[in-house]
Write a protein that binds this DNA or RNA. Structure first.
Lengths: 191, 191
DNA sequence: ACTGTAGGCCAACAGGCGTTGACATAGAAA
DNA sequence: TTTCTATGTCAACGCCTGTTGGCCTACAGT
C-alpha cells in the first residue's frame, strides 16, 4: 500500500505559513488584489515557493479556501430550536476562522470561488437540512433560503460592515435571525 | 446665473455609451477584472476617452455606480404589507438595472464601493424605515436586518447564483421572504 | 471662408502581475 | 566522506494594467 501519512517533510512549516498568509490576504483583499508576492512576503519566503508548492494562484486559493461548515446533525436538535442552533453555529464558525470570509469575498469576482461556494452550500447545507427528514421535495429550496439569510448576514457584517449589523451582539442577532431560519426550515410560505 | 442645464454636448452619446458599458462590465466582472480597455472596447471608443471624461477608473466607477433605490414611502403602505412591498420593490428594481449588481460585486473587494454601499443602505433604507414612524430607537437596527436579508437574497441570486435561489419565481420568493422583512420591520426579537 | 475648439485616436510610459528556470545550500543517504 | 535530493533564492520573462501627451479631424462661431 502507498503511505497515506508520510512522515513530516521539512517544508511543512513553510507550507503552513503560506496557507495562513494566503487566507489572511484573500479574506482581507479578495482574490485579485491578494497578490502572490504579498502573500509570500507575509510568509517570509520567495514568491516562487508558492508556485512550487501550490502550482498556481488558483491552486493556492483552492487550498486556502478548503472549508468544512462542520454543521451539526440537525436530526439530533430539538425541532423548535433548529433556527437558533444554525445561527449560533454560523456566527461562531466564521468568527473564529477567516477562511469563509476569504471564500465569500472571492466568490464575488472569481468564478471558481463562486462554484466552490455553490458546492459548499449545495452539498453541506442541503445535506444537513435533509438530515431532519421533513418535506424532502423542498429541501433544496429551504436550504437556499437559509443560505440567503446566512450569507446576507455574513456579507453585511464581515464584508460590507454595515454599522448596525456589526454593532449588534451575537445574542441579539440570534434573537432576530433564528425565527427566520426556523420558518425557512420548517414553516410554509406567507405563514 | 450659471447655466445648470447646458445644451447637449456632442459627446453626450459617447459618455452614455461608456457608462452603459462600464455598468455591464462592473456588474459582470467586479471592479478589478473590469478593465478600462474592455469597457472602452465595448463602447467602441479609445481607452483614453474614458480618462478624459471620468478622470480615472475610480471616477468612472463612481459615476457608474450612482444609484437610487427609489424606495416607496413606507408611511403610505398598509402596515401589514410592508415586507411584501419591500421584497417586490427590490426584486423589480435590480432585475431591471444592473447597477446594483455592479455595486454589490465591487463592494466585496473595493473599499470605496463598500463605503458607497454602506451609505446607500444607511441613508436611503434607514430613512425609509424611519418613514413609517414606529420605534425610532431601533430604526437603524431594523434597517440593518432588512439589509442583511435583502443583500443576501441579491448575493445568492445574482452573484453566486445558488441554483435553488435562482430558480424560485419572484412570487415564490416574495411569499417566503416578505414575512421575514415584516418581522424585522415591525416585530420584536424571538417573537 | 476662416478659425478655434471639442471630440477622438494612437503610441507609449512606468509599474505590477503570475510565472519560470537557473543557481545555491543544507541535510539525509550511501 | 561523498552524493543526491529537497528546500530555498535570484533575476528575469512576457503580459496586462491605468494613465499620459501628442496629434489629427470635424464641426460651431464668426
Amino acid at each position: 500500500m502507498t503511505d497515506t501519512a508520510p512522515r513530516a517533510r521539512r517544508s511543512d512549516a513553510t507550507r503552513a505559513a503560506i496557507l495562513r498568509a494566503a487566507r489572511e490576504r484573500f479574506a482581507a483583499d479578495g482574490y485579485e488584489r491578494a497578490t502572490i508576492r504579498a502573500i509570500a512576503a507575509d510568509a517570509r519566503i520567495d514568491p516562487s515557493m508558492v508556485m512550487r508548492y501550490y502550482g498556481s494562484k488558483e491552486g493556492l486559493f483552492a487550498a486556502a479556501a478548503e472549508f468544512d461548515l462542520r454543521l451539526p446533525d440537525l436530526g439530533a436538535v430539538p425541532p423548535d430550536r433548529l433556527g437558533e442552533t444554525l445561527v449560533r453555529h454560523f456566527l461562531r464558525r466564521w468568527e473564529g476562522d477567516e477562511t469563509l470570509a476569504a471564500l465569500l469575498r472571492a466568490a464575488s469576482t472569481n468564478p471558481g470561488a463562486a462554484e466552490r461556494m455553490r458546492r459548499l452550500f449545495a452539498d453541506q447545507l442541503a445535506a444537513a437540512v435533509a438530515g431532519f427528514g421533513t418535506d424532502p421535495a423542498n429541501t433544496a429550496r429551504r436550504a437556499g433560503l437559509v443560505a440567503s439569510q446566512i450569507l446576507g448576514l455574513a456579507f453585511t457584517r464581515y464584508i460590507v460592515r454595515l454599522p448596525p449589523v456589526v454593532e449588534m451582539a451575537p445574542d441579539e442577532l440570534v434573537a432576530w435571525v433564528a425565527p427566520t431560519l426556523q420558518r425557512y426550515l420548517t414553516g410554509r410560505p406567507e405563514s
